[in-house]
Simulated assay, not measured.
Amino acid sequence: MFEIDALRLLVTVAGTGSFTGAATRLNYTQSAVSRRIASLEQQAGGPLFERLPRGVRLNPAGHALHRHAVDVLERLARAEQELAVIHAGQGGPLRVGAFATANISLVPTALRAFKQARPEVEVIATEGRSGTLTQRLADGALDLAVVSDYPSGLPSADGVTTAFLLEDELLVALRREHPLAGAGTIDLWELRDEAWLQDAPAGGPTLLLDACARAGFRPKKLIRIAEWTGKFGYAAAGLGVALVPSLAAWAVPAELVLCRLGDLAPRRTVHIALPAAPLPAARGLRDLLRDTVADGWSRVHEDRPDRT
């Protein structure tokens, strides 16, 4: 295996045409250059230079190694430049993960501001459950993730830190013709006879069941629908009602109305997860997510025209 310094010396000697010239350029002694070239030739299996009365020149073997040395050194120079840009937070990839409803409005709003501020950074977005995203952060496959404590508490992993971002209130989605659709805020008890749409597997803890228990009843019927589009379709058809995170308010179709559930409204918390040594670009996106919540996204979200 050839050392980088030895390859750099080979290129310098070839460029100057002498050991003396290379020594001057690299601030070596001539004897040090001679020893290192001799060591390199030993590694290469034979001479690399023709020794001339004045100076040296590459022989065929030297030309072959010189070609590869130039390529290696150019690649390393490009790598150094790319790493400098990444460490400055002004380029390279940024791998971002979020759970589904965070990707409806919150994360895209922050990413739009991020791309305006750092257009040279390539954002690679992915979606998944919070536990999976946290593990991918720990494995080095993500640079930042937006995660929540639903349904089983805030996930954790070695080397991953989390910071609170917001509290996400769950609303109830009713079709517009529902008798309670115009109430604005309703008592969860008033929905005790409804069929409920949810995606959690049977037998597991859910915010819905916990909230219903606090309200003094257990849902008479649960319809398990995995995707939000399916839940909205069933609710719009009058086949059930569904809890909808406020994060998802902008995705609710016009056939549905969102109502608050008062003091018994279930809530979850949303957090920003980062590795122990986050990239500057990841720290920048973290700050923009906080700004989005504090300054812009919450007002836009609360002003949704058909939210009651």
Rank of each mutant, 00 (worst) to 15 (best):
A215P: 09
I4L: 11
L247Y: 07
V56S: 11
R214V: 05
V270R: 03
D187M: 07
F49N: 13
Q43M: 15
I86Q: 10
D291H: 05
P253F: 14
G97A: 02
L243A: 08
L247A: 06
A265S: 15
R78G: 09
V11T: 13
L165P: 02
P305M: 02
A110Y: 10
L142G: 00
L256T: 15
V11L: 06
T185L: 06
G203M: 06
G92E: 10
G262A: 07
V146S: 00
A181S: 15
F232S: 04
V107W: 00
E190W: 12
H271N: 04
A22P: 10
L289S: 01
P205S: 15
A125T: 01
A251Y: 15
T134A: 00
S148V: 05
D303H: 12
D158F: 08
D295V: 02
G15P: 05
R260E: 13
L40V: 13
I37V: 13
A102S: 03
P60S: 14
A254M: 15
G233P: 10
D187L: 08
R95P: 01
R176D: 07
A265E: 08
A69G: 13
K231Q: 14
D139L: 00
T16Q: 07
L154N: 04
A202C: 02
G46H: 08
Y150R: 06
F99P: 00
A226W: 05
A22C: 05
E194T: 11
A125I: 01
G21P: 09
L247H: 13
V244P: 02
D158C: 01
P253M: 15
L261A: 15
L279N: 02
I104W: 02
T206C: 05
P47R: 14
P108L: 03
V270A: 01
G233W: 14
L165D: 06
L188G: 06
T308R: 08
D168P: 03
G238H: 12
G203C: 06
G233K: 10
A110D: 09
A98N: 02
Q42V: 04
R268F: 10
R286F: 03
S130G: 02
Q42L: 13
L166E: 06
